[in-house]
Design a protein around this nucleic acid. Structure first.
Lengths: 345, 345
DNA sequence: CCGGAAATGAGAGACGTCAATCAGCGGAGG
DNA sequence: CCTCCGCTGATTGACGTCTCTCATTTCCGG
C-alpha cells in the first residue's frame, strides 16, 4: 500500500556514519568533519530524505504560545479581524498553537504597552499587534524583541521599531489603486475628487491619500481632505456639507472608517451620484455595493492577513525564514464579485 | 516555560476509565457503554483535550499519495498553475504528502482517461484534474470514485460526474464582474462590446460571456462573439478585422487565452483605445496592464486554487469534511495593485 | 610516538497516539 | 452451574526524532 519514506537512520546507513553523526549534521550541532558532512548531505540528496515534522514536533513537545492584541471598539473591520483570529485559534489548537486574542482600548498607547508587558511576563513566544506611530509603542516593541519575543505588526506598520515582520497591505499602493479606478470611471474625462479620512495624522490614511494624489494630480481637482475621525455621524455631517458646498464633485474616496455615515449621505443624494471608492468589506459597505450606492470597495483581505500573521509567528518561533511571500495586495470588490457572506449558508 | 497540554491519558484518568476505553471513545471503535462515553466526553470538555495530530500522524505512518493532471502545451496560465503545483509538492513533502504533477495532451479525452487509469493502478489516494465536458471523462471520474479515489476538478467543473469537489471560480460571476467594470468605465454612457473567446463550446468561456450579457444587455450593443481558438495569431487577425469593420466598438472582453495577439492589435491601434478587460494574470497580460494597453485583468487566483485543491485532497483522504470555504472569488487587477512578480527579488 | 582534542559510534528514554492482545468482570440465558 | 457476550482494564510495540550520556577511535602538533 504505502511504502515508507526514508528516515534519518536510512540516511546514516547510506552515508556509512552513525545515526548520531547524521543527526549532528541535520541539526547543525557541529563537531563533524567536512567529509562526513558531505557524505550525509549526499545521502540525504540521494534518498530524498525529508525530516518528519510530525515526529520532530512530537519529540520536542513544542507549544507555541502567541497573542494578538487588537483595538477594542465597535469598528466593523476589527470586529471581522477579531472573529478571524478566534477562528484561527480554534483551527490551530491541534497543532499545539495556543493563540490568545486580546482587546485593548484603541488609540491608547499606554494601555497597549501595559498589555504587552503583561503578555511578556506571562511568557508568550510571539505577539501580533496593530501598529501605531508612537514612541512608547516603538520602545515597547523593542523591549519585547530583546526578551526574545517575536513581534508582527498588523494593518499598520511601525517601521521605526524592531518588529520582525509587517503583515498588511501597502497603503500607498491601495491609494493608487483607488486613483486608477476613479480615473477609469471617468472614461478619460476629468473630475473633482473628495478625499475622506479618519485623521491625516494616521499614517495609513495619509499614505492612501498620498497614493491617490500620485495618480490623480494634474488630471483631477482634489478637494480639501475631510477628517471624519472614523465616526459615522461625523463623516455623514461633513460629507453632506462638502457635497453641498462643492456640487462639482464627481468622486469620493474614503480612506478610513465611519462609512455608514457616508452611505447615508449617498442614499439621500439625488442622481447623479458620484463615483465612490472606499475601504474594507464589512456588512455596511457590502450593502452599499449591493444597493448600487458604492462602486468599489478596496479590501485588505483580513483572512489572508490572519493566515499570514499566524504562519509568520510560527516560522519565527521555529527560527525559520518567515516565508516572505511578498506584500499583501489590495483586493478590489464590485457588486458582482463579492465573496459569499461569512456565516451564511 | 511551556506547561504541557492534556493527553488522552489525562482524559482517561479524569474520566476514571482506562486509556483503552478513552481511546475507544475518541476513535469511535464502539463497544463502550453510554455512561463511559459520557464520562470521557465530559473529561475531554473539562480538560480541553485536543488530539495531538503530530503523534497521530506519526503512529499511523500515513502517506498521502495524490496526483494532478494538467493539460500540456504552451498556455501561459497552465504553465503558472503547473509551477504552483510543483512548488506545493515540494512544500508538502515534510507533511508526508507525495504529489505527482503530470501533463496530458490538451483537448484529448482519450489520453486523459488513459492517464487516469494508469494513476489509479499506481494506487493514488486522490486526483485533481482540469474538467472537460466529455462523456468519456465523466465516466472515468466515476470509475475513480468507485475505486475509492477522491477526485477534485480544477478551473472548469464536470458537474455531471461524481467528482467530490470543484475548486475554481464561478465563470458566470467572472463574466458579470467584467460587465460591471466595463459599465463603470463608460461613466454611465453606453457603448459597444466585442467579446472574444477560445470557443463557445468551451463551457467556461460560454459562461463568462453569458455573465457579461447578464449585466450589459439592454445598455450596450454586443458585437458578434469572436472565436480565436486560444491562439495568439488567430486572435490577433480576427480582432483586428472586427475593429476595422466596427469602429464604434468601445470595449473588448476577452474570456479566453491567446491574449498576446490581442495586445499586439492594441499596440498598433491609434487612440482612442477601447476599454479592455481580459482574464488571467500571466506575463504578457501583466505587461499589457503596465503599458496601459489593458485596463483590467480578472484573475482566478491559481495560488489559491492550488492551496485549496491540495487541502481538499488531504481532507478527503482523512475522511474529514472538505472545508467548503465557499467558491473562489474572481480577483480584479489594475496596473496599480499587481502582486510582485513571482520569482522576482 | 605520545598526549590531548576532535570526531564518531552506540544506545536509550521521552514525546502522544494507534492498534492490537489478553484477561477479568458481571449479567443473562440455557 | 456453566457458557457466552458485552464491557472494561492493563499492557505493549511501533512510529521518527530529539537529546543526552559514555565510550571509543582518529587525527594532529609537538
Amino acid at each position: 500500500m504505502d511504502r515508507r519514506m526514508p528516515t534519518l537512520s536510512d540516511v546514516a546507513q547510506r552515508a556509512r556514519v552513525s545515526y548520531a553523526t547524521a543527526d549532528r549534521v541535520v541539526n547543525a550541532r557541529g563537531g563533524v568533519s567536512a567529509k562526513s558532512v558531505d557524505r550525509v548531505r549526499a545521502a540525504i540528496e540521494d534518498l530524498g530524505y525529508v525530516r518528519n515534522v510530525a515526529a520532530a514536533n512530537l519529540s520536542q513537545r513544542k507549544l507555541y504560545r502567541f497573542a494578538v492584541v487588537l483595538p477594542a471598539g465597535s469598528n466593523a473591520f476589527f470586529a471581522r479581524v477579531r472573529a478571524l483570529f478566534v477562528e484561527a485559534a480554534e483551527r490551530l489548537r491541534p497543532d499545539r498553537v495556543v493563540l490568545r486574542v486580546e482587546d485593548v482600548e484603541a488609540f491608547d498607547p499606554r494601555a497597549l504597552c501595559a498589555r504587552l508587558e503583561l503578555l511578556a511576563e506571562d511568557g508568550v513566544d510571539g505577539i501580533a499587534l496593530v501598529g501605531s506611530d508612537d514612541a512608547q509603542v516603538t520602545a515597547a516593541i523593542d523591549g519585547l524583541r530583546d526578551r526574545g519575543i517575536s513581534v508582527v505588526t498588523l494593518v499598520s506598520d511601525v517601521p521605526g521599531s524592531g518588529r520582525d515582520v509587517y503583515v498588511g497591505i501597502d497603503n500607498r499602493t491601495a491609494g493608487r489603486t483607488a486613483g486608477r479606478l476613479i480615473t477609469l470611471a471617468h472614461a478619460g474625462g476629468g473630475g473633482a475628487v473628495l478625499p475622506v479620512v479618519g485623521a491625516l495624522s494616521a499614517p495609513d490614511h495619509a499614505e492612501r491619500v498620498a497614493g491617490l494624489r500620485d495618480v490623480l494630480d494634474g488630471f483631477f481637482r482634489i478637494a480639501p481632505v475631510i477628517e471624519g475621525r472614523d465616526r459615522h455621524a461625523e463623516v455623514e455631517a461633513r460629507v453632506a456639507q462638502a457635497l453641498d458646498a462643492d456640487p462639482a464633485i464627481t468622486a469620493i474616496y474614503s480612506a478610513g472608517a465611519g462609512n455608514a455615515g457616508l452611505i447615508r449621505v449617498l442614499e439621500a443624494k439625488p442622481e447623479p451620484r458620484p463615483v465612490v471608492v472606499l475601504h474594507e468589506l464589512v456588512p455596511h459597505t457590502r450593502r452599499g455595493l449591493e444597493a448600487g450606492l458604492i462602486d468599489i470597495v478596496i479590501d485588505q483581505r483580513p483572512e489572508e492577513e490572519v493566515t499570514r500573521a499566524t504562519e509568520t509567528l510560527r516560522a519565527l518561533a521555529d527560527r525559520r525564514d518567515p516565508a516572505a511571500a511578498g506584500p499583501i495586495v489590495p483586493t478590489i470588490f464590485v457588486a458582482e464579485n463579492l465573496p459569499p457572506m461569512p456565516g451564511a449558508p
